[in-house]
Design a protein around this nucleic acid. Structure first.
Lengths: 247, 247
DNA sequence: AAGTGGTCTAGACCACGAC
DNA sequence: TCGTGGTCTAGACCACTTA
């Protein structure tokens, strides 16, 4: 930093320096300069480049790490977060069996086709009614039995030309979005309620219509906080529970 | 710290210094030396007392703040977290109306009486079967209508002689536990599922038996991480949603 | 004006991982 | 052995609250 202008040029901004550094780093990730898996420069390097102390860089990177935007490991270095089946599940799959253990999950695709946004989908994704989306229906088998019927809508503006790889049935959707569409899902908001099984869902899960199901509406956002996906999951909770930690 | 023994006496412990400081501070809170609302000494004071730098104290206190054990405010100082109706709701009440807005909630006590732990209660609270507990049944009115039927069990070992103040119906339970029993609820784990309304619940909520309800089992832990309460909530989600943020 | 937490720096050493 | 992130220090100044 310059000697006689203590706060330095960047500091015309009122926000703390570490926030600005955080935003600069995030910008490089969102902008694609640093794709998933990329090795981020070391802390001393970034400090020198940005004209701040290493401590300031550390504070910025700690915030990004906490949001799972980057991954740090002592001795190895820092990389841009890259989804894999395990991390995607760990962050975004809250179901456990009755003993609290993780669940073996397998996916079957029921249908996959382009469509137009219904009002509720448009509202969730921040689109105009009738905007192009991609519809995906899936059934999840938990520990071998069909337990979840999912109806997903992907915003075609963010995932243009989406289509499942031919012949490939199961796959963690967010891993696929990152690999094939350069879209990294970073967070999601879910709204839970109880509902009776409609006929389509009942058939998919092999349950009588009217069975009480856990209904989860999810909106998933990418690293730039754009709504990418809205998903309606109908869950048979006979042998599983949705786990939440409050603190 | 002494000059020739760099890591100092405390440092025989393998854990980082700031973790040890965190534990020392938490110990004073759990032990009752610093009750809820107590003004924690300033950072420089604690640093001098414990023989570490202010930065180390800061890191320890930041962790405690993030866990809502203490509250820090610039200029004012740091205090031990004290529940009030607003914070208790904000942390532990996840229901929103269909527009995502907070909900007006009123409580009616249905029954309140001592009892013995059923197997599932004993398991949840880490007690022996038949151990003394206090049973509490409540109905919550959300925006004026009965929407939640709650069956709570409090571990009498941790909340001896619990009884509701005569004549007083509504009250945020965790505020009451802190004020009258020196037990501060710090976190909770919830397991959600869908279930058909049983007759008792249906009657309490004025719904037909068999109506799909959101069932939430909560286990609440105090600052020392002891299970204090297990609660079964049956929720009518006709006009409300349980909101979860995943990141 | 005094005292608190919040930001920022500069530099030391440690623990871990890869080469 | 070297480079990385992780810990810890000492001290400066800023922003806010209270009196």
């Amino acid at each position: 930093m310059s000697i006689l202008a203590p706060p330095a040029a960047v500091r015309l901004d009122a926000r703390p320096l570490y926030r600005q550094v955080e935003e600069i780093l995030l910008g490089r990730i969102v902008g694609g300069d640093w794709p998933p898996g990329h090795a981020v420069p070391s802390e001393p390097e970034l400090a020198a480049e940005l004209g701040v102390s290493q401590g300031t860089v550390r504070k910025a990177m700690s915030a990004l790490e906490q949001r799972h935007v980057i991954e740090r490991r002592q001795g190895r270095g820092t990389t841009v977060a890259k989804h894999n089946s395990e991390t995607a599940r760990h962050h975004f799959f809250r179901l456990r069996d009755l003993s609290g253990r993780a669940v073996l999950s397998r996916i079957m695709v029921v249908s996959s086709e382009p469509g137009r946004a219904e009002p509720w989908e448009a509202a969730a994704l921040g689109l105009e009614e009738g905007a192009p989306v991609h519809h995906l229906r899936r059934i999840r088998l938990l520990d071998g039995s069909p337990r979840i019927f999912e109806r997903c809508s992907l915003s075609s503006a963010l995932v243009p030309g989406f289509q499942l790889p031919a012949g490939e049935l199961a796959q963690e959707l967010y891993v696929y979005l990152q690999q094939r569409h350069q879209v990294t899902i970073r967070r999601a908001e879910e709204e839970l309620s109880a509902a009776a099984a409609d006929t389509e869902t009942a058939e998919a899960l092999g349950k009588p219509a009217g069975t009480p199901l856990l209904m989860v509406q999810r909106i998933a956002y990418d690293v730039a906080d754009r709504a990418v996906e809205v998903r309606l999951s109908m869950i048979d909770t006979e042998r599983h529970r949705y786990a939440v930690h409050l603190d």
